[in-house]
């Protein structure tokens, strides 16, 4: 009996000692056990709020103002007299602002057709893992375009509404791993005024794009908008309307993103990309272009609003 007691005592002590070792060894496990599962949102599917010329799913964070300068030179095939297109540039200046992390508004002006555009952009679903899983990021974009150039035919009865056009896109993107993002962008462009009865006021298009990370500060991008046949019958300046295809790279240095591209489109908005582009890669109607964006934080996160935290 005595032996048994001793044995039990030893046993109990052993349990105690081992428990105390356990308690010391696994404070981290204890913390992990206490943890609530969190949702991890996918970040940086694309570097900019534009893939090349059209929108990407990305939005500016709350309180961030993004100033964008877009530039498209003339076609490379325009010859030496125009320095291979460098003499003829179209420019878009734009401001986008983050009302919230997911809702942005924007305004811009393109020199081509002297068009002013106003945009509402809402990232309403985010790709996420963890507590909840969701495979896609989805963003809705709506833009109103106002063509402020002089009427081409001032003698006829011109309506104000004829200056207006709209576009609506649903952008769906997924980032696969760390390097590759794909995006689909079904889009409708509605023109209040079209040249003939055979031209549809609303042109439906499906776009696709990708962004591939090459290094931490270099990415390759491509963007294509396909317009199904039979929607646009009129020529523009004697040329058929073509699908828009652009390729480019993003170079990132601190607060700037430089996007350099080659494209068959001179426009920098969806309205131009879908239905107004006549450039053809095959004929050498290739335009060099760039976007430069610079962000300004107008409203700081709450941790930084009070001083000397």
């Amino acid at each position: 009996m005595k032996k048994c007691k001793t044995l039990l005592t030893v046993g109990a002590l052993f349990v105690l000692v081992s428990f105390s070792t356990f308690a010391q060894e696994d404070l981290l496990d204890l913390l992990n056990a206490q943890e609530n599962p969190v949702t991890t949102y996918t970040i940086a599917s694309f570097k900019g709020t534009r893939l090349v010329s059209g929108h990407s799913v990305e939005t500016n964070a709350e309180g961030v103002l993004n100033f964008m300068i877009g530039h498209r030179f003339g076609a490379i095939n325009s010859g030496w007299r125009d320095l291979y297109g460098l003499d003829n540039a179209t420019v878009r200046l734009g401001f986008d602002y983050g009302l919230t992390d997911q809702i942005n508004i924007g305004i811009g002006r393109t020199s081509f057709q002297k068009t002013i555009d106003g945009t509402f952009k809402w990232k309403f679903l985010r790709q996420q893992t963890g507590l909840k899983n969701f495979p896609l990021t989805a963003t809705a974009v709506g833009t109103v375009y106002f063509n402020s150039s002089e009427w081409s035919n001032p003698d006829r009865d011109n309506l104000f509404s004829s200056r207006i056009a709209y576009h609506y896109s649903l952008l769906l993107a997924r980032k696969f791993g760390e390097a590759v993002s794909l995006q689909l962008m079904p889009t409708v462009v509605h023109r209040n005024l079209v040249p003939t009865k055979e031209d549809m006021n609303s042109v439906v298009s499906i776009g696709a794009g990708t962004s591939i990370k090459v290094t931490n500060s270099l990415r390759f991008n491509a963007e294509y908008y396909f317009i199904p046949e039979g929607q646009i019958s009129s020529d523009i300046g004697g040329l058929k309307v073509k699908n828009s295809l652009s390729i480019g790279v993003d170079l990132e240095t601190g607060g700037h993103v430089f996007q350099l591209h080659l494209t068959n489109s001179r426009g920098m908005t969806e309205k131009y990309l879908i239905g107004e582009n006549t450039g053809s890669w095959g004929n050498g109607d290739i335009h060099f272009g760039f976007n430069v964006s610079r962000v300004f934080t107008l409203k700081k996160p709450k941790e930084f609003r009070k001083k000397n935290l």
Binding site: A23, Q24, L27, L28, L30, L31, N32, E35, V38, T40, N60, A61, E62, G63, V64, G98, G255, V295, T297, K300, P301, E303, F304
Partner: peptide, 17 residues
């Protein structure tokens, strides 16, 4: 004994970028 754990994504910066 002491232990700490944190999520890197939970760091807030002055600038979103």
């Amino acid at each position: 004994g002491m232990a700490f754990t944190l999520l890197m994504k939970a760091f807030t910066f002055e600038k979103a970028l």
